[in-house]
């Protein structure tokens, strides 16, 4: 097509810049729209004042302390979920894999709830303990689900999805059980479980940010290996990938991402499924583009979903997990139908 040795590189830059701009617009909308609408110029000025440490004017508190952390957190959570989706889809060579469907979100949820109830008295502990519990829950779940799905030899995709859904149910039931036992914290936990960003605040942002960076750094440095994994494990090994080690690294990185998202926002489904899929349809399967573009795309999707959750029934707020499920469920069905139609 073109004689240039790197036709992909400029395209990649353009795509990522466009997504970044889209994210900025979505975030401005997210901060600006609400019970009291705020114009983009006011938002920028308020943020400027906060960064410069100047005195606040009335209205700054709503923007800087309430809406901004929530929008930033939504973006971070969306990025975590979509990146995790990309990683698991590559690992299992299947576009239907996603942390929610694989049961990891439920596992992280149970881990987080247990951590939450154990440390109910010491709020300070939660920031370390809840994500740790979520991570542990996510890792144990994915290891168990993969083992379960490969009982009859090679890992087959139908078993993987079925095992994920089944384990998801069991873990959710166990979560409910824990909640019944610790009645006093039930309401907040229930709301958290449905997936929401109502509790968003800057400390949550500071907790999720390093987890996102830690979870996505290694995969971003391994995009070629992720591409090779799509050719099958044997072929990836033939072409020089240390497959067993790589799988463990990616499973762990994905679990960090899922744990970060679940710890602050509960169970939010389908973002990790939809976003990578749409990005792949638009930009192709190359992880050098797919992974960063999905992270940005997930951020956009999540900011918009949260905006809908906050405003559509205002002043009542619906958990954002309901919004993503209402859109994502049918999307998943469409994917299944389309996939079967191809065969």
């Amino acid at each position: 097509m073109t004689a240039a040795p790197h036709p992909g590189r400029t395209r990649r830059t353009v795509v990522l810049a466009a997504l970044l701009a889209l994210l900025a617009v979505a975030m401005l909308a997210g901060v600006g729209l609400g019970a009291v609408p705020v114009g983009p110029a006011d938002i920028v000025r308020a943020i400027g004042r906060a960064l410069a440490g100047e005195a606040r004017v009335p209205g700054d508190a709503v923007i800087v302390d309430i809406r901004l952390p929530r929008v930033v957190l939504a973006a971070l959570v969306g990025a975590c979920l979509a990146s995790a989706g990309v990683l698991y889809q590559a690992l299992f060579r299947n576009p239907l894999a996603d942390p929610y469907i694989l049961g990891m979100s439920a596992g992280a949820g149970l881990g987080a709830v247990i951590a939450l109830t154990l440390t109910a008295s010491a709020t300070a502990l939660r920031f370390g303990v809840v994500p740790a519990g979520a991570f542990l829950g996510a890792v144990l779940t994915i290891v168990f689900v993969v083992r379960l799905a490969s009982l009859r030899g090679a890992l087959d995709v139908t078993s993987l999805l079925l095992a994920g859904v089944a384990i998801s149910y069991v873990l959710s039931a166990m979560t409910s059980f824990v909640m019944v036992f610790f009645r006093e914290s039930m309401t907040s936990v229930v709301f958290w479980m449905m997936g929401g960003l109502t509790a968003a605040s800057w400390p949550y942002v500071w907790m999720v940010t390093p987890m996102l960076l830690a979870g996505i750094a290694v995969p971003l440095l391994s995009t070629r290996e992720l591409n090779l994994m799509l050719l099958g494990e044997d072929r990836a090994a033939e072409l020089g990938v240390d497959v067993e080690r790589f799988k463990r690294v990616i499973l762990a990185a994905g679990a960090v991402l899922v744990a970060a998202a679940v710890a602050v926002s509960g169970l939010i489904g389908f973002v990790g499924l939809m976003t990578p899929h749409m990005v792949r349809l638009a930009l192709g399967p190359d992880h050098r583009v797919l992974l960063p573009a999905s992270a940005l795309g997930g951020a956009v999707v999540m900011v918009l979903a949260d905006l809908v959750a906050r405003t559509v029934l205002a002043p009542v707020e619906i958990p954002v997990g309901i919004v993503t499920a209402l859109v994502g469920g049918p999307f998943f069905v469409w994917l299944l139908v389309r996939r079967n139609g191809h065969r």
Binding site: R93, R235, G284
Partner: peptide, 14 residues
């Protein structure tokens, strides 16, 4: 070592 396998799978559109 390079390998040419019996069966090549290509389910992704590179």
């Amino acid at each position: 070592v390079g390998v040419v396998p019996q069966q090549v799978s290509a389910t992704f559109s590179f």
